[in-house]
Nucleic acid binder design. Structure first.
Length: 676
RNA sequence: GCCGGUGUAGCUCAGCCGGUUAGAGCAUGCGUCUCAUAAGCGCAGGGUCGGCGGUUCGAGUCCGCCCACCGGCACCA
């Protein structure tokens, strides 16, 4: 029997899943159920990503042990997934022993392959700046800020030789065009590969929350490196060789478009290094927007999938998300549109069709339908539909697959209007014709319902039962149940409306936008946490991972790009007082040439002194709008060169999903005033 | 700034290698049937196919330039 191993990204557990997360799982579930319908032995795995500092911190905030916190969150996630009828076969957690075994296996094999080198990261280091310097930052070999020659120093770390795999990855992409879909994502990654790869740091020193690096137990495996391995640990790498042989390599990783690079570049390189087969395909799906806007937890605009499901049922939500959003592209969700589609597709079309077919069967034939064997145009169309449906679903054009089924439903409604069984029923002489029409319509509907099974598992099963097809869901096969049955009497049963038509005065939901969460105050703007908000999926902060912690001579940053949170999230007043916050007045502002985000500000920082600060707020403020404003800034930050200029400080702004909002004062204090 | 994508009826989108009056679904209006969830079926209105220019007998479909929006990279201490 053919096999199919399917995964979704594993999720951070620092907050509950929202509609964007649910979208990924639902579409993956549709694929899994479609495969099973096709008679494919399918293994569908989901899970949670728990070795994140954010998770650790969140648990601490709540005064809980991290693991206990993760246990609780697993239950919350499972509750949501159950409500959405997700048919995963296994649920992996990165804190499980089997995952630890797999991580150790892979890291050990990578080390054995010689692709892991103990950091000793080298680079130019300016003592004045307290920072590593890139070659390109130096002016005639000197630090542009301090006019001194930086030192060449070393710092310990563990790196994976990602750069060594560029050619093999390029070759793989060339040989397997289907490896990364859709094509937009593929092109992006190809360009990234063209630009070259840098080695990546895979360890974090001095942390306890994580899996110790086998080659250096004083460090833990960096969270996203750890997370990727879940796909292998879930099928027994390092714990169950037989299971692993059965399922590996994975056939499909369904992930958000923001993390395709982890799955299409780093993950295959890791596997190549470890001498393991790479997954057959990665699919990067798009986002679900809310009213055209990115859904955001911090703005309180994230939709609770449970609320959406409760509104019209889980199956209705599953249908909406699969049918209305071209798979791979971004889509838009609104309750108005959801209701509109619910009424059109489910109440008026499918639901009503079920009712009229079964009602007429009951009324004219006491539920007993007998075949007459006469071919009809519906039978031909059904064959075409099955073909189109299969072709679409096989290439994950889920929306097209579903659309083709609805064309068959439309045709069935037309057929009834054309043959008018209610008229035939008036004259006993038409008994044979009436039998033919009732049977044909019921069979067409039955077949269409089978095809919708992967999308709406519960309700299609209910419809089929009413149509006299009592095959258990697990035994349903496309080749058998998706074929037109010209023979075999059956019994249909009338019943309640499955999807009563709904008309609400105001389908918008006020509670969605009700309570915006507090906005993070963060120095400088623009650093949005997309993965947290939107995909909340696996391999963590893409901003932090591949590009930044690199070891090539060209890159500084000894470890990660993240500010390396200490084991304690709490700081003392002494720590805080090290930061010198001051009031400043913007004397002049101009856009930095060739930069999209930077404004160059001339800030009065004392009675008669001024300094230059570069601020990443150009997407939120024009230079004119900011001149004359009184702002807050960090005064004692090490100078930093950017875009050929040097910034002496950092402006404070609230960060609401990439949109900066400067801090304002009721009555502007004099420039230079200390803030604390 | 570089790279890529999108821009077609009120809304969501189809339109392959250029070829008769540009399509579908939803929404709207009218008509009609009555088995059915005021559902079904039929008909209709509605589009300078983002803009300008070019190639061609002929362009939504090819080429160039421009505009808008989206995404990726650089950049965001």
């Amino acid at each position: 029997m053919p096999r199919f191993y399917l995964t979704t990204a594993i999720d951070y557990v620092n907050s509950r899943p929202h509609l964007g997360t649910a979208y990924e799982k639902i579409t993956a579930d549709v694929i899994a159920r479609y495969k099973r319908l096709g008679g494919v032995d399918t293994h569908f795995v989901m899970g949670n990503d728990e070795h994140s500092q954010n998770v650790f911190r969140r648990a601490r905030e709540l005064g809980q042990e991290p693991l206990a916190y993760c246990d609780r969150m697993e239950q919350e996630f499972r509750d949501v997934w159950r409500a959405l009828d997700l048919s995963f076969d296994d649920f992996i957690r990165t804190t499980q022993p089997r995952h630890k075994a797999a991580v150790e296996t892979i890291v050990t094999r990578i080390a054995a392959a010689g692709d892991l080198y103990q950091a000793d990261y080298e680079g130019w280091y300016c003592v004045g700046c307290e920072a590593f310097k890139q070659e390109k930052d130096l002016v005639e070999g000197l630090c542009p800020i301090h006019r001194t020659k930086p030192d060449w120093i070393k710092e310990r770390n563990h790196f994976f030789k990602l750069s060594a795999y560029r050619d093999r990855l390029l070759a793989h992409f060339a040989e397997h065009p289907e490896f990364l879909q859709p094509d937009v994502r593929r092109n992006e990654i190809l360009r990234l590969l063209d630009a070259g790869l840098e080695d990546i740091s895979i360890s974090r020193a001095g942390q306890s929350w994580g899996i110790p690096l086998p080659t250096d137990p004083s460090s833990v495996v960096y969270v996203w490196f750890d997370a990727l391995i879940n796909y292998a640990s879930a099928v027994g790498l390092g714990t169950d060789p037989a299971l692993f042989d059965t399922w590996w390599p994975a056939d499909l990783h369904v992930v958000g478009k923001d993390i395709t690079r982890f799955h299409a570049v780093i993950w295959p390189a890791m596997l190549m290094s470890a001498g393991l087969p790479v997954p057959r395909q990665v699919f990067g799906h798009g986002w679900v927007h809310l009213r055209g806007e990115k859904m955001s937890k911090s703005l309180g605009t994230a939709i609770d999938p449970l609320e959406a499901a409760q509104r019209f049922g889980a199956d209705a939500l599953r249908l909406f998300l699969t049918k209305e959003i071209p798979y791979g592209a971004d889509g838009d969700f609104t309750f108005e549109r959801f209701e509109e589609r619910y009424n059109a597709d489910l109440a008026n079309n499918l639901g009503n069709l079920v009712n009229r077919v079964t009602a007429m069967g009951a009324r004219y034939r006491q539920g007993h339908l007998t075949p007459t064997g006469s071919p009809s145009r519906l039978q031909d169309l059904a064959a075409t539909t099955v073909r189109e449906y299969g072709a679409a679903m096989d290439t994950y054009a889920l929306h097209q697959g579903v659309a083709s089924v609805f064309r068959l439903l439309d045709a069935t409604n037309e057929y009834l209007a054309e043959r008018a069984p209610w008229t035939l029923a008036k004259d006993p002489a038409n008994a044979a014709a009436l039998d033919e029409v009732l049977f044909t319509a019921a069979e067409s509907l039955r077949l269409a319902t089978v095809l919708l099974g992967p999308v709406m598992p519960a309700s299609t099963q209910a419809i089929l039962a009413r149509l006299g097809d009592h095959t258990p869901l697990v035994d349903r096969r496309l080749a058998v149940d998706g074929a037109w049955r010209a023979a075999g009497a059956r019994t249909v049963a009338a019943g309640e409306a499955l999807w009563p038509r709904v008309v609400s005065a105001d389908p918008t939901t006020p509670d969605v936008t009700a309570a915006p969460a507090p906005v993070q105050v963060r120095a400088l703007s623009g650093v949005s946490s997309v993965p947290e908000d939107q995909s909340s999926a696996t391999p963590v902060s893409p901003v932090a991972a591949p590009a930044a912690p690199a070891a090539s001579a060209a890159t500084p940053a000894p470890t990660s790009a993240e500010p390396a949170p200490s084991e304690d999230a709490v700081i003392t007043i002494d720590d805080f007082m090290k930061v010198e916050l001051k009031v400043g007045k913007v004397l002049a502002a101009e856009a930095v040439p060739k930069s999209k985000k930077l404004l160059k500000l001339t800030v009065q920082d004392g009675a008669a002194s001024e300094r230059t600060i570069l601020a990443g707020i150009a997407e939120s403020y024009t230079p004119e709008a900011i001149v004359g404003r009184t702002i807050a800034f960090v005064a004692n930050l090490a100078p930093r060169p950017m875009m050929g200029l040097v910034s002496h400080g950092m402006v404070l702004a609230a960060d609401t999903d990439g949109k900066a909002q400067l801090i304002a004062f009721e009555t502007p204090p004099a420039p230079g005033t200390r803030i604390r």
